[in-house]
Design a protein around this nucleic acid. Structure first.
Lengths: 210, 210, 210, 210
DNA sequence: CATGAATGAGACTTCATTCAT
DNA sequence: CATGAATGAAGTCTCATTCAT
């Protein structure tokens, strides 16, 4: 009300709502979720939720964004002090940086299985939206991944070929492993599954590559 | 009144409803879909839909099953006369059978993009059901895939390693490519994307595999 | 189809339907009852039910009439050979004929508790109908009861007073005992309860009647 | 906006809904009643009705409870200043207290004929519920009635006999008279009918009691 | 700014009734 | 005469959103 500093009051409330919303959306699904439930668990009035996020859809998008942010933080933390994945690449080579990224994602979702639901649901519910979050996120993430692959191909670490195809293959394998891994119920072994899949992608399935 | 054959009327009606339902569910999403719309587009009363399928959920599950069946048919058709993928494997080797399966799936979903939505939605809406269709399908599909991989590893076509991991990697890459490929909007190039990804998985990303 | 005698075929089917209908209506209530269930349990098509009884309401009314008929039969059987209650009255006096009627009704509903539900439901569902069955039945039953009371008063068995009041009191006590007795759950002791109540009505509650 | 007292708003709205609901349920019957109609006549949205009462069944039960409460109030008012029926008994004797109770009930339902329908319907629709309102009410009402009868028997006012039987007879006669009295259409003479029936029960039908 | 009572459009589902076979 | 698939009106209940306090 009269904070001289920077009234983190509002954003504090927003954070709490988002944390609760992530749980509820993940557990119930977007359509199934009753905004009243989120308000109740967050200890605020339903009107407050609407005041902060406008409507249910924007609340979900904000929730997804929050989850993505948490994932990014976690991946960055795993870089062992290197400021960027690019820097890590130069130091440890292409294979290790891809291993690290994949493992970091798997760890995050193994620890926060519900957040994976958010990722999947956004795909279903907002596929037609002009700027579904994932598409936006992908532009960033993909740009980074493409640059990484490009560097790794130029350095000779990776086989020559289209950068885009390599990024696609890595990204799709990772996405597929995370989603299917969580479906198969062994969300406890998500890291292991992803690590093994990435290893196979790196080295190839064939005994005698062409 | 003057049908040559004797009324396969009931199952005929069911098929028509399922075909319409696949379109509507895919276009609108499960929760967004109004059963009335399916009934209207199928040219039947709403009660007829409920008479045949019990409720909206079972209608969706039947729709998903129908889509899966169509996919299986398509894949089988691609086997160039071989009765099973196993037979194809013996004749053409592991690499080609995996290429064929992946390409067949990609072709199918490139031709029927909406059916991919059904696949994805089932994952979201019925993740908690005891026997979501996908889980059941996976048991079959996976059993076949595992057997294929096992044979291919024993024959020396594929690198030695866990059968399960190879199946996971191939399945996850395929699933991820299909889903992400459709998201990225180039559902027109789904086949191309999947082919390139599978090629990379077969031969490995690394220039010098370990 | 070519019975020389009197094709009880149709009425046979009707009887079966009515017997089933009585059970279902009693168990589920009129509004809750699905005609399909009656058709199924009776082993006939739903169309057959409608062919015989026109609509659900008429089916219920026919069912109620059937139950009333069964009750009348039972009461008549209890008259120990006397053709009418009137005849029984002359032979045994007013007290015994009232006891007999009450006991016979109680016996019937104790043996067929479900039929009591039919009685009660008709009151609720068709209270506004021009000729609810009960009203019609009452005209007959009441006419008989009134005549009985009139005779008994003239003979000096019963206290002088309005015939109508005596009939009302007896009928209301009987109706109330049956309904409340079934509610209280001791439908096993319906006979006992009715007998005791009738006894009290006959002799009065007061130690010193005015 | 300028109410003198501070919004008993919620319970006020509830009361209004209940009053309307009593009318509609009584006039249409439970199954026949459309909640929308109640909402419209009460001048509120349908959601408001559901917000306050949960579902149609609970709304009906609340309505029945409200009616019972009104009846109790009315009976109490008739006690001419005596705090309880027990007190009235001591002052005026058994016969008069029973007359008073019966007359009070008859008066109430003669003035509010629709409420009688509620009483009857609850019996039909909720006969299987664990705690249909009537059963609960009966426990209270019956406990009071039993105590009254017990006192009256001990005092010598009433004939010796089972307390339970006396209560049953009085209660059943009253219930039967009210229900049948309303059926017979002379709801205008309900009081008269009940008074005469009770008089007969008190003094007995027989000219020469045993 | 927060609240939560009120709202009403919207969706699922049931079932009495019909009618072509 | 019997059948049961088809129909669609009708009714219950939910929940996103608003707004007066």
């Amino acid at each position: 009300m009269s904070d001289t500093i920077l009234k983190p009051k509002a954003s504090e409330t927003q954070r709490e709502i988002l944390i609760v919303a992530a749980d509820v959306f993940a557990a119930e699904g977007f359509r199934n979720t009753d905004v009243q439930v989120i308000a109740d668990r967050a200890g605020v009035g339903k009107g407050t939720v609407y005041r902060h996020f406008g409507n249910k859809e924007q609340l979900f998008l904000a929730t997804a964004q929050y989850c993505m942010g948490r994932l990014e933080e976690h991946v960055t933390e795993q870089l062992e002090g290197y400021p960027t994945a690019e820097a890590y690449l130069e130091a440890h080579g292409a294979a290790d940086v891809l291993r690290l990224i994949a493992r970091a994602c798997a760890q995050f979702y193994q620890q926060n299985p519900l957040y994976l639901e958010i990722l999947i649901q956004e795909r279903v519910e907002f596929r037609e939206a002009n700027d579904p979050l994932q598409v936006l996120m992908r532009k960033n993430t993909r740009a980074g991944l493409d640059k990484l692959m490009e560097t790794a191909i130029k350095s000779g670490d990776l086989r020559k070929g289209k950068v885009k195809s390599a990024s696609d293959a890595f990204g799709d394998l990772l996405y597929g492993s995370l989603v299917q891994g969580s479906v198969d119920g062994d969300s406890q072994r998500l890291v292991q599954r992803v690590e093994q899949s990435v290893e196979l992608l790196l080295n190839g399935l064939l005994a005698s590559p062409s």
